[in-house]
Write a protein that binds this DNA or RNA. Structure first.
Lengths: 349, 349
DNA sequence: CTGTTAGCGCTTTCAC
DNA sequence: GTGAAAGCGCTAACAG
């Protein structure tokens, strides 16, 4: 393989990139003409266009993204930062984001922060440097860090996060409303004491949920907040705390956590929902967790969330003016993990 | 829109980017000096360096990625293409890939092809245009398409896909070996007739598994292949076909499918593993699907898969020479969904 | 050690 | 309709 002297084509050899100049030379036209036919920027003699096309094919020319970006003043890509790719929630949003970005001729660059606020800020900066705009999904960083990013004067849209006061464009699910629905449902079933398996501390969505639980007192529902996390494993690990909480129902930060909790609770001998109601959030069950397909949960149109966020980002990159937060309504999906409490609320402890 | 006369700072206004020239002007040095202190390329007078630093801070200067990329001749990023972000398998691999890329000062750009071979090829081209190298995870495109990409002379590493003949660098799990282990396990338990819930047709990993099943005849195990898919939902939907197949065990394309199958089979009244053994592949259960944490499965070090793939890509971008396929061994994780067949193999139909 | 000077590959006025 | 030429913002020789 490498024995022969100067192999004509050797894998990995950084052969000189073919540039627009090469194409022009072969086609016998100027670089500007090549550029024009490639971009359809202006009318070009069909014959010349044909020659350019065939030169491109012959040489296997591919435009250099960096050069285009520099000359055009835009990268042709948007960035999306998510805290955790392993949560099926995000891939779903990403699909719709990609669709609208693609329709605007832009690539999508995805990065994952691993739930770490510090690297989140850094990655967001990175994205801004190489994208025309960025979507920050469920950012965990604090308000100051977000403001700092905003100051860069780079198009930025928040997803599932609202920063009060400053006019930062955002698109979020109405978690407050969603959890209010959940509490209403529980109250109506007759539950009085419920536990909430709390998500990441820095999560705005989590805070919104808790805010709704505070309001749930009006329904006569008392909510005990149990620190938990965002993964199924963490939900699984919270079973003891739930059982110790003397509640008849548990609401989980998300469906992953709920699924974990259901599993652990069942392993501990409880019947769901007869002995304990479990309600999730996000409605990812149907798609990816058939084991939990019967989970009662709060649902939103993830598809629309992504679509609207991407659209706002696009309009921001175009007009540059857009400030109000948008909210996507949530709905209750009553399935099979919620039911009236077993006996008298908590007399037979 | 522009009612008020020239608002001092208006969100989204594309204020002229501050360049290295501006920094130089403020610091009273040349652009090269600025570049030098920013990149640590050469020794610079501490005093000048200090002035540069403070000018950078004052102006809020951020280097332009496109310009850097063009000047340096490299993008400072690697691209990773995956078929399906919703499969927890990939986020896991991505984390280790990101780690090594980061340690080489490179960003990671993730794209998803949605299991579509056509857009896969297109996205791969896109990635090549804006990244220094790309990782193709479980590509579904055919051999010719892969060869076509290879011809671009751009660093490329295949993950979980091998293309025989040409020396295309690749890092894959040894699915053949893994499934051989699975068959051995099943044979030892006394199973004679097993079903395989087959994954995507274009999947090399799937083909490897089937290749192993062919060899399983030597163990006295007869495998019926049932077309299925890669999602839990598809596994769930295959229960009828499995029951109709008159088998005592089913091996699934992956853990998602297995989980779906377990759920459906149980709903149909079968006990797992007493009435039917179910074995998965990939071992994603522990991390993300507590409902299936007891799944017997074939496991590989995903972490290592990502790490080695990224390392090979890096070395490819550096040396440019590397050609053999690498394999990561798989191990059997015997948990609680596999057991000896209920009665005499298939006498009591 | 520092400044000057060429480009990197492409787009885009601007004349022709 | 087409070509020449001037950058886009940055790095990297190259002289001092």
């Amino acid at each position: 393989m490498g024995a022969a002297p100067v192999p004509a084509v050797r894998k990995g050899i950084r052969q000189r990139r073919v540039t627009i100049t090469d194409v022009g030379a072969v086609a016998g036209v100027s670089t500007s003409t090549v550029s024009r036919v490639l971009n359809g920027t202006a009318r070009v003699d069909p014959e010349l266009a044909r020659r350019v096309q065939s030169a491109v094919a012959e040489l296997g020319y591919r435009p250099n993204a960096a050069a285009q970006g520099l000359a055009r003043g835009e990268a042709g890509a948007i960035g999306v930062l998510v805290p955790d790719l392993a949560n099926p929630y995000f891939p779903d949003v990403l699909k719709s984001v990609s669709a609208v970005a693609r329709s605007h001729g832009r690539r999508v660059m995805v990065m994952e922060s691993d739930e770490d606020p510090a690297s989140e800020h850094e990655l967001a900066e990175d994205l801004m440097r190489c994208c025309d705009g960025v979507l920050l999904c469920s950012p965990r960083m604090d308000r100051a860090a977000i403001v700092d990013l905003t100051l860069r004067g780079h198009p930025l849209v928040l997803v599932n996060r609202t920063v009060p006061g400053l006019g930062i464009p955002s698109v979020s699910a109405d978690f407050y409303g969603g959890m209010t629905l959940v509490c209403g449902h529980l109250a109506q079933l007759g539950h009085r004491r419920v536990a909430y398996l709390s998500g990441p501390e820095a999560s705005w969505a989590n805070a919104e949920r808790i805010r709704a639980f505070d309001a749930a007192a009006a329904f006569g529902v008392e909510v005990t907040v149990i620190p938990c996390g965002h993964t199924a494993r963490q939900g699984y690990g919270s079973a003891d705390a739930v059982r110790a909480a003397d509640v008849t129902a548990v609401v989980a930060y998300n469906d992953l956590v709920a699924t974990g909790a259901v599993t652990a609770l069942e392993e501990a001998g409880l019947r769901i929902p007869e002995d304990m109601s479990v309600i999730g959030c996000d409605d990812i069950s149907l798609d990816d967790l058939p084991g939990s397909r019967r989970l009662t949960t709060a649902s939103m149109a993830r598809h629309e969330l992504g679509t609207r966020a991407a659209r706002r980002l696009e309009s921001l990159m175009a007009d540059g003016d857009d400030t109000e937060p948008h909210y996507i309504p949530m709905e209750l999906r009553i399935r099979h993990t919620s039911a009236p409490p077993a006996a008298l609320p908590h007399t037979s402890g």
